[in-house]
């Protein structure tokens, strides 16, 4: 019951937070020079035509008026239209966000699967090769740009070896996407039980997930290792040792205590990658939300950008709520 009240209170704060995010990003975007009307009509358009489209788009009104009109539309669920795709932004994003979420989620899962064991082992075996490996891995993952690694992977595994699927989106051209349930092809093809499509989806996911996963495993390894280092030296672990508990128990207790830190770094990476995976999305022609927002920024197409901001803000707020609930599940001290 107390938990429900807590969730309710948190959700109450979501609205003012969203308002702030929308306001700040709206005015910042309006400060970027560039006239959409000019871009839409091209350099040869007449002044009357430009003026007309400006008044149709409401660009001749004051900034405050434009903002209020935008807010009213957002509240009614209308994120405007993108003049590039000529489709409602909401429709575009409903297609593109699942693509990004699918990529980011699987990449982080992969990063966790390799990062946590390496971090634990590096902390346990101080003088081993795995400890050195983790040191250099952190350095390498921190200094390599992810899009570059993606390009190398494409060059090696697609161009030379021919093992990987073409880096041209989420599915081969001849294959129809599965019926939309969640929007993630990975999940939807599983639900449909369509193994051929599923195989193709996995083939297309492999390289980008590998790219993002390997890069983001770096901070996860570092965080796991340093927290485990600290915990293995802590009072209660030393005490557990002096009670004669087995090594497996000791490691399990230390790991359990280091979970909050790992969770923190994962949530930070997750919220960063929702927009930050854009370069990898471009390299693999993923058609994700970051790519969509970027082309909006480059073409003074404000609606897709604002739509992206609103959506990713909501996703981040939900993500942080989930993370806080997970903290509660892990640490009894926070529950009161």
């Amino acid at each position: 019951m107390a938990l429900l009240r807590y969730i309710g209170r948190r959700l109450l704060f979501v609205l003012p937070q969203l308002f702030g995010i929308v306001a700040v990003s709206f005015f910042l975007l309006k400060m970027i020079p560039g006239d959409p009307a000019l871009l839409m009509l091209g350099p040869l358009a007449s002044q009357e035509a430009i003026d007309e489209i400006r008044s149709v788009m409401g660009l001749d009104k004051s900034l405050i008026e434009q903002f209020i009109i935008y807010l009213e539309r957002v509240l009614s669920g209308d994120l405007g239209t993108s003049w590039q795709t000529t489709k409602p932004v909401m429709e575009d994003l409903l297609k593109r966000f699942p693509a990004t979420m699918e990529l980011v989620t699987l990449s982080l899962l992969f990063a966790l699967i390799i990062g946590i064991p390496i971090g634990i082992l590096a902390s346990l075996l101080k003088k081993s090769i795995i400890n050195k490996f983790s040191t250099y891995y952190g350095l390498l993952a921190g200094s390599l740009p992810d899009f570059w690694l993606g390009l190398i992977f494409i060059f090696v595994f697609y161009t030379i070896l021919g093992w990987a699927a073409a880096p041209m989106g989420r599915l081969d051209l001849g294959i129809l996407p599965p019926t939309v349930v969640s929007g993630s092809y990975f999940i939807d093809s599983l639900i449909a039980g369509d193994w051929e499509t599923f195989g193709n989806v996995v083939a297309h996911l492999t390289l980008p997930v590998l790219t993002l996963g390997l890069i983001n495993a770096g901070p996860i390894i570092k965080m796991t290792q340093s927290t485990m280092d600290r915990l293995l030296e802590s009072d209660h672990i030393r005490y557990a040792r002096s009670c004669g508990l087995g090594e497996f128990q000791i490691v399990r207790r230390a790991f359990r205590n280091s979970l909050p830190s790992v969770l923190t770094i994962v949530s930070v990476l997750y919220s960063f990658l929702i927009g930050g995976a854009v370069l990898v999305e471009i390299v693999f022609s993923w058609g994700g939300a970051g790519q969509y927002a970027l082309s909006g920024v480059l073409n003074a197409d404000i609606n897709p950008v604002m739509g992206f901001v609103v959506w990713s803000a909501i996703l981040c707020l939900v993500l942080y709520l989930i993370v806080d609930l997970l903290y509660f599940a892990i640490d009894p001290r926070l529950r009161d």
């Binding site: 802590s234 009072d235 209660h236 672990i237 005490y239 557990a240 040792r241 002096s242 009670c243 004669g244 508990l245 087995g246 207790r253 359990r256 205590n257 892990i330 640490d331 009894p332 001290r333």
Partner: peptide, 25 residues
């Protein structure tokens, strides 16, 4: 051998009991 002695034959009472117990269990 040491592990089989510690906690069963030889045991330790420590100061600051609150930081010596695992906070999560």
């Amino acid at each position: 051998d040491l592990k089989s002695y510690l906690g069963s034959q030889i045991s330790l009472i420590v100061p600051n009991p609150k930081s010596e117990l695992d906070p999560l269990l």
